[in-house]
């Protein structure tokens, strides 16, 4: 029971971070390996705002999210947009990995390698409901993730721009044919993907201790989430994110903590052997 609640609460935050990744892949066929370190960058943004300027963590997101959007747009314009050709996806991994190295090195220089954790009154307090303790930060984080994901869904399914993103998700060439500016859509998507990741970074920073090298651990989880969910599937990222944390918690409690981290990877391998396209992925036709 506890595992399930934790799965939903924490899993939704992972889902938020993974959504950015899957959105970018779906639209651009870019695998942004820097997503992990960008989570950490978001966490450090929040850290700076709260420790140096005394701004509340959630209020600080009003600055962090736009700032992360700009970071995303810059990365896309300067580096990612230059990638072309049949090896584009593979190259994107290398380029974003290099970007991740630069960001990681810079964060280490600025903040040192000491572990930090974000603090606020709600970080260490809980409330009780039906005999279960709920830490405030997890609940708030969950609400934030739900809020941002709903906002994203509303934007995707209710606005004109959202329609052009969805068109690009389905088929880039066709989208370009009907007059959608795929380049602009790509840039904004990348920005959006990074921005919501930054928000996830705040929650991550408040619920975990982190330093710049935490990014590597994160990206492996995020990547497995999007593969399990089906690459490019937003709903899949949500389900897989929650599934991951639930499975880890259950295995951790029932069996042993050693196996808990590995269990999710094993679930992934099993799922993929049965369904190579992931839970909600489209299988690209063998003929087309």
């Amino acid at each position: 029971m506890h595992a399930l609640i934790d799965g939903v609460l924490t899993g939704s935050v992972y889902a938020l971070m993974a959504t950015g990744l899957t959105l970018i892949f779906g639209v651009m066929e870019i695998i942004n390996v820097a997503q992990g370190i960008l989570v950490i960058l978001g966490a450090y943004f929040s850290y700076t705002l709260s420790t140096h300027f005394g701004i509340d963590l959630f209020l600080g997101l009003l600055i962090t999210i736009p700032a992360m959007f700009v970071v995303g747009v810059v990365i896309e314009r300067v580096f990612v947009a230059r990638l072309k050709g049949p090896e584009k996806t593979a190259m994107s991994i290398l380029v974003t990995y290099a970007i991740a190295l630069v960001i990681e090195g810079s964060l280490n220089q600025i903040y040192s390698v000491n572990y930090q954790q974000l603090s606020a009154w709600y970080v260490n307090k809980s409330f009780e409901l039906f005999g279960v303790y709920f830490p405030y930060i997890y609940v708030y984080g969950f609400l934030l993730a739900v809020g941002l994901l709903s906002a994203l869904y509303v934007m995707l399914y209710r606005t004109r721009f959202g329609a052009s993103i969805r068109a690009s998700l389905a088929d880039q060439a066709a989208a370009a044919l009907v007059g959608i500016d795929v380049k602009r859509v790509s840039t904004i998507c990348f920005g959006l993907g990074v921005a919501i990741t930054g928000a996830g970074g705040m929650i991550y920073g408040a619920t975990n201790t982190f330093n710049a090298s935490s990014g590597a651990d994160l990206i492996s989880r995020l990547l497995t989430i999007i593969v399990l969910g089906g690459m490019g599937s937003l709903g899949g990222a949500l389900v897989a994110g929650i599934l991951m944390v639930t499975v880890e918690d259950i295995v951790g409690v029932v069996w042993s903590p050693i196996w808990s981290t590995m269990s999710f990877f094993i679930v992934l391998v099993v799922v993929l052997s049965l369904r190579p396209q992931g839970l909600f992925g489209k299988l690209s036709s063998r003929v087309a």
Binding site: F25, E29, I31, T89, A90, I93, L223, T224, I226, V227, M231, L272, P276, Q277, G278, G281, S284
Partner: peptide, 8 residues
């Protein structure tokens, strides 16, 4: 799995 998913 094919290409991109294979990488991941």
């Amino acid at each position: 799995v094919r290409r991109h998913t294979y990488v991941v």
